[in-house]
Design a protein around this nucleic acid. Structure first.
Lengths: 169, 169
DNA sequence: ATTAAGTTTCAGAAAGTATTGAAAGTACGA
DNA sequence: TCGTACTTTCAATACTTTCTGAAACTTAAT
């Protein structure tokens, strides 16, 4: 199989995975493209490889930089910006986990914590009890998970990875 | 705060969380609604609580049953179907993990495994090497993660939960 | 100060997803 | 077997998200 064909299959699979997880298709594909490239690519090159517009390329490269997954590289004697992605999967997983937790989990925890503090009033006392109880359970669960995630994010090197792999065996 | 107001806040937060994770808003909200209800609800009741159409309610309740998150309950002397959701968060997390892995991760692993078997040909040998190398890394990572997830899914009771919580402390 | 190379922005178009509502389907009891 | 109570389906529509392309902006060399 030739490289371009193989690349195409990989980029497609990765894009699909991303989009199922609420990360836009192009963003995952650019990331994947930069991961498999031996050298940093310019916006032009990204546009060409993925057949996307300049605007789209630019926006998603920015987003990847915001997530800390991609960095800029300047080549002396060239005004273009080049972009490259880190290749360590655990580092990538950590960064993605960090961003998503911040954006998605933290707000939910706020809501749950807020609700837990409130005195809930209502006619149907079984309904009130059930609600209060569920909120408590979900909040506890979310906090535990969050602690675990926190540990993962902060773990230096591959400590966490190694520990988890031991669990698997 | 009265129950309906509190419910509203909770359902909204949960719906948003779901939609960010590629699960449709209504599906998460129905699930959340059934979780906080002390008793099983009919399609009518779900429609009314969430202000959604019959078709929408029906489709998403079916989907939740496919995922194993919601079950049907029949009340004698009543032709209506009632639905209820399990309340154990770890059980819920396991079921969601199981479904998503099956639908999303497994296909990617197939693609990666397929690519790894191929002999990749190309002009630019650095590009080929980089590609082959990345695919290998990503495949290894994905397999490890998958093993871990597998262990989680298959773990009976709360073994896994307890083990993880120990890690956090 | 001007030009040229490159980057960013954003309104509108296109694509993708979710929702409705009404018609078709099912199954139970009389 | 008919009527009724309920469930399911699906084409049309509404909504959301993503993408484009061209104009505005930035920067640096001359």
């Amino acid at each position: 199989m030739n490289l371009n064909e193989a690349k195409g299959k990989f980029l497609e699979a990765w894009g699909t995975l991303g989009s199922q997880w609420g990360i836009n298709r192009t963003m995952s594909q650019i990331h994947a493209l930069l991961m498999i490239s031996p050298n940093a690519l310019s916006t032009e090159e990204v546009m060409e490889e993925l057949n996307i517009s300049r605007g789209n390329a630019n926006m998603n490269i920015r987003a990847l930089m915001d997530w800390g997954l991609v960095s800029k590289e300047l080549k002396s004697g060239d005004r273009k910006e080049y972009f490259k992605a880190g290749k360590d999967m655990w580092e990538i997983a950590r960064k993605i986990t960090y961003e998503r937790r911040k954006r998605e989990i933290d707000p939910v925890i706020q809501v749950l914590a807020g609700l837990k503090k409130e005195k809930i009033e209502g006619e149907d006392s079984a309904a009130v009890e059930s609600f209060v109880d569920s909120v408590k359970n979900i909040h506890d669960f979310t906090l535990s998970t969050n602690d675990l995630v926190e540990k993962f994010i902060k773990s230096d090197e591959h400590w966490f990875y190694k520990t988890l792999l031991k669990l698997v065996k």
